[in-house]
């Protein structure tokens, strides 16, 4: 499977994606503007509560081409963060009390400077989260020691596993991904990850593999824990449920399968004002592979830069100005406010 970008698909154009997302409203339809719902909740303009997480997307290159990927990542994507831009991130970090750096991609480990970056962040005494797709660990012998590398730097590993069944996982992430993910999870367990008493944290991310919302996070976690330990001898710490946002390849899937309208309706009907107050963009700064600044990784993939009154590139980092910015919202934001809410840290209510 190729990325939308490599296929020259119309949805590779983020302007076109935004047109699709706002069309229902333009046609005078039933899906109210997200901004209107925020205004009703007294949350517009949406302001940061203070940046506590710097989320860095170190590149779109990935060994997988998942059907729901909001980054449109894949082996054919070459956009990758340079060491110079990483240095700018470190310079910014040094001036702030931001405690957590969340590394994502693509497969972040495929960036040639990934390990250097982790070491530098770690040396600054900040916690590192790696959004690891699991299969990268077993993709090539040069990655086999990643679990030990992560353990050495006390990296928090957050990994996608959309289901405890191979059928549902492979339908979303590709043929054979489930089996390779289980192999990688065993390697992480062997390095102490997810094992009680080690302090090495391994969280799994559940994304629905289809046009439906995630169920109750605690109930799904119980089920995942039972099944994974019983059937595969695998342990982990927490399950984080994340709603699929209707952008990029998931948007393509929704349109192709005829589920777009009903999925948007589901998100709008499940709008939860409490989740709206807790959205992750209020406490996150997202940095793109080229150093540009965004309110979240979803806005990043839609090319929606931070509000122009704040600096828009990491070289011009100014924490006070960024904490004063208005967060950019659009119709895709309904994905983070549906039901129990959704964020990179799972449910928000």
């Amino acid at each position: 499977m190729k990325s939308l970008h490599a296929q020259h698909h119309p949805l590779a154009d983020t302007g076109y994606q935004l047109t699709v997302l706002t069309q229902a409203e333009v046609e005078g339809a039933h899906q109210p503007l997200f901004a209107t719902r925020l205004r009703e909740a007294g949350l517009l303009p949406l302001r940061p509560t203070g940046i506590t997480v710097m989320q860095v997307n170190v590149g779109k290159m990935c060994n997988q081409t998942c059907r729901h990927c909001h980054v449109d990542a894949g082996p054919d994507r070459t956009e990758i963060m340079t060491r110079a831009t990483m240095q700018q991130c470190l310079d910014a970090l040094r001036q702030t009390p931001i405690e957590v750096v969340d590394l994502t991609g693509g497969a972040p480990e495929m960036n040639p400077d990934f390990r250097w970056f982790v070491e530098q962040i770690s040396a600054l005494g900040r916690e590192v989260i790696v959004r690891c797709n699991l299969t990268i660990i077993v993709a090539n012998p040069k990655y086999y020691d990643l679990p030990e590398f992560f353990a050495r730097h006390r990296v928090r590993v957050v990994s996608s596993l959309p289901h405890f069944s191979a059928v549902r996982t492979d339908a979303q992430r590709g043929e054979g991904v489930f089996g390779r993910s289980i192999k990688a999870l065993r390697m992480l367990n062997e390095a102490g990850y997810g094992v009680e008493g080690t302090g090495l944290s391994l969280d799994l991310v559940y994304n629905p593999s289809g046009a439906f919302l995630p169920g109750n996070q605690a109930a799904l976690e119980r089920e995942f824990k039972q099944r994974l330990v019983r059937e595969h001898g695998v342990v982990f710490n927490s399950l984080l449920t994340i709603t699929n946002l209707p952008i990029s390849r998931f948007l393509e899937y929704l349109l192709d399968s005829g589920n777009y309208e009903s999925y948007l309706d589901k998100l709008v009907q499940a709008y939860n004002p409490v989740a709206a107050a807790n959205v992750m963009c209020r406490s996150t700064l997202s940095i793109g592979w080229d150093g540009q600044l965004y309110d979240c990784d979803f806005n990043q993939q839609l090319d929606l830069l931070v509000d122009g009154r704040a600096p828009q590139h990491i070289r011009d980092f100014d924490l006070a100005a960024l904490n004063e910015r208005s967060i950019v919202v659009n119709q895709h934001c309904y994905g983070c406010t549906a039901g129990a809410g959704s964020s990179c840290g799972g449910a928000t209510t």
């Binding site: 289901h163 069944s165 059928v167 289809g210 439906f212 169920g215 799904l220």
Partner: peptide, 12 residues
């Protein structure tokens, strides 16, 4: 069917 999928049930 939708609710079972949301609650984490699989095809089997």
């Amino acid at each position: 069917t939708t609710d079972s999928l949301q609650k984490g049930a699989d095809e089997a």
